[in-house]
Amino acid sequence: MTGKQVDLFLDSIVNAPLKDDRALMEFPFFSLQKTPRLKPLVYDDGKVKIEVRPGERGIATIWDKDVLIYVASIINDRLERNLPVDRTIRFSAHNFLQVTGRGSGKRAYELLLDAFFRLRSTTIVTTIESAELKERRGFGWIETFRIIERKTKTGKKVMAACEITLNDWMFRAIAQDRRVLTIHPGYFDLSMGLKRRLYELARKHCGYQERWVISLPRLIDKCGSVLEPRFFKPQLRKVIEDDDLPDYHISMNFDPREREAVAQDGLDARRWATNERILVNFQPRASVLAQASASL
């Protein structure tokens, strides 16, 4: 198959907005580390239960998730243009790498192939509904994938196109529930896994509100982090100091009401500052609030 023939059948993103599944933004489904995570990720808040089990290459990472964002954006764009959609999507590997801000060398294509393997082998069991249906079986993010190669003039084989079939749960969420939110293209510039996860939470829970506040232990759970609070806090402080999340600022402080309560009870004021009393604040940048006001 020639490169010209391949291009005739490929979906791509040109000027379409980037979309992410709201459930994937709200709950922890992906590893935040680049080293293989072989320990299952379990989240249970009493209402929603999620268990993510690793394949032989570990749990799919938040960088692997770029594939799902890209595909969700393609499906949403086709729906917006009243075009038919299907769980199987064929797209240009080069366009994917370009949109997600990755290189175009051999290593970039190898990493994309690794992402397909992890997305296929990671098993998810969840009670989150999709199109009013609850999944009670395990599924992978993608059911199948196929790589289409072509030869260059020098005889070298290159990845020309990718074909993946989404799991039915996610496809229903995008195509039927329209359970998507627009995300900032700068998301792909974030190299730190925690920064990507914090941006997702900010976009989903804060949006255009003045602020969203969450306790530190609850935030760690929402991130699906394997780190204890004493190791998580330095990473969070770095995120706060860098202050480079698209559209949002983050700050951290102790709940002043808790301090007053401790003082009234006559307890040692030096012991009130526990991890449970740390609050993490998410606030939109001024440009986001201005944009929201202009659209009203």
Rank of each mutant, 00 (worst) to 15 (best):
F282A: 11
D21L: 03
R137T: 09
Y109D: 12
F232W: 14
F116A: 01
R203P: 03
I142S: 13
I89D: 06
A93V: 15
N281T: 15
S215P: 00
I183V: 13
V85Y: 01
L190G: 01
D221P: 15
R53L: 12
D7A: 13
F27G: 01
D21R: 06
G55W: 04
I250R: 03
V125G: 05
W63Q: 08
F9M: 10
P256C: 12
L111R: 15
F116K: 07
R230Y: 13
W141D: 13
W169I: 13
T154R: 14
P17D: 04
A72W: 02
R102T: 07
F145W: 14
Q283Y: 02
A292N: 06
L216T: 10
A23E: 15
Y248W: 03
K49E: 07
S295W: 14
E260F: 04
L18A: 05
T126M: 01
I69T: 14
A202C: 10
E132S: 15
D168A: 05
F231K: 13
I240H: 10
A108W: 12
L289F: 05
I220A: 09
I174L: 06
L190C: 02
R90I: 07
K134Q: 15
L24Q: 05
A160G: 14
E200Q: 04
T274V: 11
V85C: 05
L41N: 01
V158A: 08
A261S: 11
I142W: 06
T35R: 08
T2M: 14
V6F: 15
A294N: 07
R237C: 02
M252W: 06
T122I: 11
R259Y: 07
T182K: 14
R22V: 13
R150P: 03
I75W: 12
L289W: 09
L111I: 13
F30Q: 01
W212H: 14
C206D: 00
R118I: 07
F188Y: 09
G140S: 15
I250G: 02
W212S: 04
L198V: 05
D168P: 00
F116S: 10
G224S: 05
P229M: 10
V85Q: 00
P185Q: 08
Q98M: 15
R203F: 07
A93I: 04
K4Y: 15
E276Y: 10
R136G: 04
A294M: 11
R172T: 01
V48K: 01
